[in-house]
C-alpha cells in the first residue's frame, strides 16, 4: 500500500474486530451461511477440563457452509480469542473434515471451494500430540481439496498464523493478508525463548512486522494480496482469488522458486528484511478454470 486512502479508511467496517463466527459469515453471500457443528452441538475438547482449562463448545473453530459469489463454498474460521487459536483434537478434525467433505463434494460434481481464516499460534500444547496429528491431517486435506477448487487462506490479524498452521498457509492456493496480519513458522516469543534475545527480540514490534507482517510477505511473494482491514475489501479479494481458479503449479510446488529464495540469502550476512529480494516473477498464479 502507498499513501493511505482516507475515504476508504474512514468508511470501512473492520474485519479484524469481528470474531471467528462473524468473519466466516461476513465473507459468504448474504443469507446463505449455515454453521455446521456449532456451539449447540457441544463438541468440545475432552482434554482441557481435566487440566483445569475451561473448554469452549465449538472448540474455537467455526465451520460455515454457504455460497460465495453464488458458488458453493465452506468458510472455516479459527477463533483467536480461544486458547490462542491453538489447534486441538476437535478443532483440528473440524477443519480437516470440512475440507475433506468439500473434496467429496467436488468428486460428486459440486465445485465447493474453501476459505480458511487462519489466526493460530499452532498446535494447542494442552493437547500436544493429538494437536500435532490433526495439523498433519489438515495439511493433507488442504492438498486434496486444492486439486479440485481453490483453498484461499486469509490472515487478517491480529493474532497471525504461526506454528503448524503456517505450513497449512503455505499450502493454500492463494493467501490474502492485511498489514496487521503476520505469518511465520515460529512466533517471536518462541524464537527468543529457544535462541535468545540476540536472535530475535520479541518485544521489537518493528522487527516482527518487518519479517512476519502482511506487507512484507506480499512484497516477497509468500502471500498474494495485501488488503485493507475492511469487510467489503476482504470479501472482494476472496471472491477474486476463487475466480482465478486452480493454478497449474501451486506455491508449495514451485521448488525452483524456493531454492532461489534460499540461495539469495547468505545466512552469515543476511540483508535487512526491507532489502530482501522478491523472487523473480514467473507466470502469475493464473487459473485455467
Amino acid at each position: 500500500m502507498t499513501a493511505p486512502d482516507w475515504e476508504a479508511l474512514l468508511g470501512r467496517t473492520s474485519f479484524i474486530e469481528l470474531d471467528a463466527r462473524a468473519r466466516a459469515g461476513a465473507l459468504l453471500d448474504d443469507g446463505t451461511a449455515r454453521e455446521l457443528c456449532g456451539p449447540f452441538d457441544h463438541l468440545d475438547s475432552p482434554w482441557l477440563e481435566p487440566q483445569g482449562v475451561v473448554p469452549q463448545s465449538d472448540d474455537g473453530v467455526v465451520v460455515v457452509r454457504g455460497r460465495l459469489d453464488g458458488r458453493p463454498a465452506v468458510a472455516i474460521a479459527i477463533e483467536q480469542a480461544f486458547q490462542g487459536g491453538g489447534i486441538g483434537e476437535v478443532s483440528g478434525v473440524k477443519i480437516a473434515s470440512a475440507l475433506s467433505l468439500a473434496t467429496r463434494d467436488n468428486r460428486d460434481g459440486i465445485p465447493t471451494s474453501a476459505v480458511l481464516l487462519l489466526e493460530s499460534g499452532g498446535v494447542r500444547l494442552q493437547e500436544a500430540n493429538l494437536g500435532l496429528a490433526t495439523v498433519a491431517e489438515v495439511c493433507s486435506a488442504v492438498l486434496e481439496l486444492r486439486a479440485h477448487q481453490p483453498v484461499i487462506g486469509v490472515i487478517a490479524g491480529a493474532l497471525g498464523c504461526f506454528g503448524g498452521m503456517s505450513i497449512a498457509a503455505g499450502l493454500c492456493t492463494r493467501l490474502i493478508m492485511t498489514a496487521e496480519g503476520r505469518l511465520g513458522l515460529n512466533g517471536p516469543e518462541v524464537i527468543e525463548s529457544e535462541a535468545g534475545l540476540a536472535e530475535f527480540d520479541a518485544s521489537d514490534r518493528t522487527l516482527i512486522w518487518s519479517i512476519d507482517g502482511g506487507a512484507q510477505r506480499v512484497r516477497t511473494a509468500l502471500a498474494d494480496a495485501l488488503v485493507l482491514d475492511d469487510v467489503g475489501a476482504l470479501r472482494s479479494a476472496v471472491i477474486e482469488a476463487v475466480r482465478q481458479g486452480v493454478p497449474g503449479e501451486h506455491r508449495s510446488q514451485r521448488i525452483g522458486e524456493l531454492r532461489a529464495r534460499v540461495e539469495a540469502v547468505d545466512p552469515a550476512h543476511p540483508p535487512e528484511p526491507s532489502g530482501l529480494a522478491a523472487p523473480a516473477k514467473g507466470a502469475p498464479p493464473e487459473g485455467d478454470g
Partner: peptide, 12 residues
C-alpha cells in the same frame, strides 16, 4: 528456530 529462517520463509 532462527531469524534468517523466518525472514526467508521457513514455513514455505
Amino acid at each position: 528456530y532462527g531469524r534468517v529462517e523466518e525472514m526467508v520463509g521457513i514455513h514455505q
